[in-house]
Simulated assay, not measured.
Amino acid sequence: MVSYELGNKSSWLENRLQFNAAYFYYDYEDLQVNNIEGALVVIRNAGEATGQGIEFDMTWLMTESLQLLVSGNYLNAEFDEFSPAIDNIPTDLSGETMPLAPEFQLSTSLLYNQVLSSGGEIDYRVSYSWTDEYYFEVGNTEEEAQDSFGLVDARIAWTSADTQWQVAVFGQNLTDEEYLNYAGGLAKYDLDAPITVSAIDRTFGASLEYSF
């Protein structure tokens, strides 16, 4: 594999704002991928594949207590030469998008720190992440694809003045977004449809930590 990366790191507003960005390019030769052929998982040489994109991250200390984090990336990853057997049928996948390679991704978090008169602290965090459509398997079929989706998470944590105790409550996927962790597998051979594994539903929890 041959890869290149060109990036820049910068600071603004008396170092309260940091912004980093990079362009990357990679070129695979003799790339190996898993592919389902009949009832078997076969590792095949996918020939050549290329990927390129841009990624960035930003940290902004808006006040002494409030901080904003933002990151994202654009990715274009595809097979240049790949002709496997899909369901025992030779198929030319040259130019198709590689599996697990969403074109766009974005995440942002807002953090707030509250100092208490007792000396302890309460940290608040709310996060949002968005992922573009992507495919789980080679072939780019809609049955083995995940549509774009966004997730909202939140967390509140109290830390004692001596930092030994921390109590936190959190919520994941607060909007109860329905999405998949996986779609594909040998069930395609048995049932003529890919097996699907759902991701986590809306979840709430709490934690208690003590440091010696």
Rank of each mutant, 00 (worst) to 15 (best):
Val2Asp: 15
Glu5Leu: 07
Gly7Ile: 02
Asn8Cys: 13
Lys9Gly: 11
Lys9Asp: 09
Ser10His: 12
Trp12Asn: 09
Leu13Val: 14
Asn15Asp: 15
Leu17Ala: 01
Asn20Phe: 03
Ala21Gly: 13
Phe24Leu: 08
Tyr28Leu: 07
Gln32Tyr: 14
Val33Ala: 13
Asn34Ser: 14
Asn34Pro: 08
Ile36Gly: 04
Ala39Arg: 13
Ala39Phe: 05
Val41Glu: 06
Ile43Leu: 04
Arg44Gln: 15
Ala46Thr: 01
Gly53Trp: 00
Phe56Glu: 07
Met58Asn: 10
Thr63Pro: 01
Tyr74Trp: 10
Leu75Arg: 13
Leu75Asn: 11
Ala77Phe: 03
Asp80Phe: 07
Pro84Lys: 00
Pro90Gly: 14
Leu93Val: 04
Ala101Ser: 09
Ser109Phe: 03
Gln114Phe: 11
Val115Pro: 07
Ser118Cys: 02
Ser118Ile: 07
Ser118Ala: 06
Gly120Ser: 03
Asp123Trp: 03
Val126Thr: 14
Tyr128Pro: 06
Ser129Ile: 09
Ser129Glu: 03
Tyr134Asp: 02
Glu137Asp: 15
Gly139Pro: 13
Asn140Glu: 07
Ser148Ile: 04
Phe149Lys: 06
Asp153Glu: 05
Asp153Arg: 00
Thr159Met: 05
Trp165Phe: 06
Val167Cys: 02
Phe170Tyr: 11
Leu174Thr: 11
Leu174Ser: 01
Asp176Ala: 07
Glu177His: 14
Glu178Leu: 09
Tyr182Met: 01
Gly184Thr: 06
Leu186Asn: 04
Lys188Ile: 00
Tyr189Gly: 12
Asp190Phe: 15
Leu191Gly: 03
Asp192Gly: 09
Ala193Ser: 15
Pro194Leu: 08
Thr196Gly: 07
Val197Cys: 11
Ser198Lys: 08
Ile200Arg: 11
Asp201Val: 05
Thr203Gln: 04
Thr203Asn: 12
Thr203Val: 15
Thr203Arg: 10
Ala206Lys: 04
Ser207Ile: 00
Tyr210Asn: 13
